[in-house]
């Protein structure tokens, strides 16, 4: 946030290449976004792999944290999909931890928020919905498409119902991606704007300088809110992924 942008609230989302990489005319440069993705993976690995390396029956602090996360996600997965859903546990766990850690890293001033880019959230959402489609079709074959045909509807209504169901299914990845993206983007812009107000009001001493504490207090409150949102959006993403994957497991309507 602080990096040279002054009070431009958009600057924090800019992507700057660190190591140029342009095969086949594609810009695959290792950028600050890539750096924070790698950092996200490193932080998660530190907690989950280093934290569990002691394998102690009585856990230390880091292992307690790792176990708490494990059991939290496991209970979410089994709560939505049942015991059978544990085959998707690594996927849901990775999604939850990736989004949560990326959101939390984004809360560090001056850092970059991976999930504030629509292409990233879209990639994750498309991944979820593709797994749903591919697994559903491979597991249940054409029976999977029974998902789009509500049982007990009168015959003449079936085409409309199928249309509605298809649209609602197609809108899932869109809403999944946009929800996370919108929340992170808006939250960080809001923080930056209120932070900018403080800077503007105090840059030149005037009668309005006395008002500076107001946006400062708001920025503090907003920061707390953003931490909540960072967790909540990761949880929402994970639980919706569970709900959608559950359709692949049990396509019956």
């Amino acid at each position: 946030m602080a990096a040279g942008g002054g009070i431009d609230p958009i600057h924090q989302f800019e992507i700057t290449p660190i190591i140029g990489l342009r095969p086949f005319g594609l810009d695959l440069s290792f950028s600050n976004a890539s750096l924070f993705m790698a950092l996200t993976v490193a932080v998660i690995s530190a907690i989950m792999i280093y934290g569990s390396s002691q394998r102690s029956v009585v856990p230390g602090r880091l292992q307690s944290l790792a176990e708490m996360i494990y059991e939290f996600v496991a209970s979410t997965v089994t709560g939505v999909m049942g015991k059978e859903g544990m085959k998707f546990f690594p996927l849901v766990f990775s999604l939850f931890m990736f989004v949560l850690t990326a959101n939390m890293l984004g809360m560090i001033p001056g850092s970059f928020t991976v999930t504030s880019h629509i292409i990233v959230t879209t990639g994750l959402a498309v991944l979820v919905i593709s797994v749903v489609l591919i697994y559903g079709i491979m597991r249940h074959g054409s029976h999977f498409f029974g998902l789009f045909v509500p049982s007990g509807a009168p015959g003449w209504l079936i085409p409309f119902m199928v249309l509605i169901e298809v649209v609602s299914f197609a809108s899932r990845p869109v809403s999944l991606a946009l929800r996370l993206f919108g929340n992170m983007l808006a939250g960080h812009i809001g923080l930056k704007v209120f932070g900018g107000f403080v800077v503007m009001l105090t840059a030149q001493i005037s009668i309005f300088t006395v008002l500076a504490p107001l946006p400062l207090m708001l920025a503090v409150a907003l920061t707390a809110l953003e931490f909540l949102v960072a967790f909540l959006q990761a949880y929402v993403f994970a639980i919706l992924a569970c709900v959608y994957l559950n359709d692949a497991l049990h396509p019956g309507h």
Partner: peptide
Amino acid sequence: TFAGQLFWLAISFGALYWLM
């Protein structure tokens, strides 16, 4: 930036999935 982002997302998320 989409191609680069997706490329690195695929690599990092794939690595994360594999590690987990």
